[in-house]
């Protein structure tokens, strides 16, 4: 976690975390994958954000018991994950790698995964049919996986993760390589899973993808936790640092001059192209409180006010670049 940011834990405080990382480090020789990470994932949909190489896949591999932590403790649903195969009945993983038993049909692949998950033949057949229907692959289920498009492959991977009806789902970059339509549909599926009571941890390096799925996020960078919690909480956390507010106004230059006189304004940047000014302040609440007076002044009709920091992209860039 960022040393300057107070530690906050997301999610309803009454609910025990679904996934817990306690002081977890994972290194591969000299390379650090995860560095002293302590984080909890609440029930519901949570986004795991970070640039490539941030350690997202390592975190998910640790959470699904594929890797053993070099240090620390990982627990899912209150139980240790390493060498705990019975826990795998309760978790599903959609891995990042685009790997399949290519010679199988989609139905065969998902059915085989259901059987590997311990379902009897009839139950596995039904479950595979349901999972493929959930991800919209029923029409293509009898084609060989090797002939699938990227979007179809992602859906099929998601189907194998869902087929045994897990309670916790780990989705590693599920939107990678998908077209906008497939992406939208996958997002709808994930939102639906969350609404049905599944706990879903979705990793992505694209912020707007996660932003549309959930306000609960975990930000990772270089194997470290940068921040976690509700996007609003994170914005509150960075209120200690300059907060950017955009004011759109025809007389933006005069407005900039007025704002510079305010004590709580750290800086003002003029954006002539947008006819706006960007205000940098450490006290956004006080600033918003005084803004109506300014708007009432003659000739300074402020047409629009919005905070750049409401956009997760800005939060992410701000925190990660620190």
């Amino acid at each position: 976690m960022h040393p300057e940011l107070p530690r906050e834990v997301a999610g309803p405080p009454e609910v025990k975390p679904v996934v817990e990382f306690h002081e977890v480090s994972k290194w591969y020789g000299n390379v650090i994958g995860i560095n002293k990470l302590s984080v909890t994932v609440p029930a519901g949909v949570t986004g795991l954000l970070g640039p490539n190489g941030a350690g997202k896949s390592t975190l998910l591999q640790l959470a699904t018991g594929q890797l053993y932590p070099s240090q620390g403790r990982v627990r899912v649903l209150g139980r240790g994950v390493w060498n705990n195969p019975s826990l795998n009945r309760h978790i599903g993983l959609c891995p990042e790698q685009d790997a399949f038993y290519e010679w199988m049909t989609g139905r065969d692949f998902v059915y085989t995964c259901a059987r590997l998950g311990g379902l009897s033949r009839p139950a596995a057949r039904d479950a595979a049919g349901r999972a493929l229907e959930t991800v919209g692959m029923t029409r293509h289920q009898d084609r060989a996986v090797r002939g699938y498009s990227k979007g179809m492959r992602q859906r099929t991977k998601l189907a194998q993760a869902l087929v045994h009806d897990p309670d916790v789902l780990f989705l590693d970059e599920p939107f990678t390589g998908t077209d906008p339509v497939a992406r939208r549909e996958l997002m709808a599926i994930i939102r639906r899973l969350g609404a049905e009571g599944k706990s879903v941890l979705v990793s992505s390096h694209v912020l707007h993808e996660v932003q549309t799925l959930t306000p609960n996020i975990i930000l990772l960078n270089r194997g470290r936790l940068v921040a976690e919690g509700h996007v609003r909480q994170i914005r509150d956390l960075i209120d200690k640092h300059p907060h950017h507010i955009v004011l759109v106004c025809d007389e933006y230059r005069r407005l900039a001059g007025r704002l510079l006189a305010w004590d709580d304004v750290e800086g003002v940047r003029v954006q002539a192209r947008n006819r706006s000014v960007v205000v940098e302040t450490h006290a956004p609440d006080a600033f918003y409180g005084r803004l109506p007076e300014l708007a009432l002044e003659d000739g300074l009709a402020i047409q629009e006010v919005y905070s750049d920091d409401d956009n997760l992209d800005a939060v992410f860039k701000y925190l990660v670049n620190k």
Binding site: T64, G65, Q66, N88, L93, P95, C113, G118, Q160
Partner: peptide, 11 residues
């Protein structure tokens, strides 16, 4: 890269 599908099963 298909080993993952085996490691995440109750085996």
């Amino acid at each position: 890269q298909t080993l993952t599908y085996l490691l995440i099963r109750p085996i």
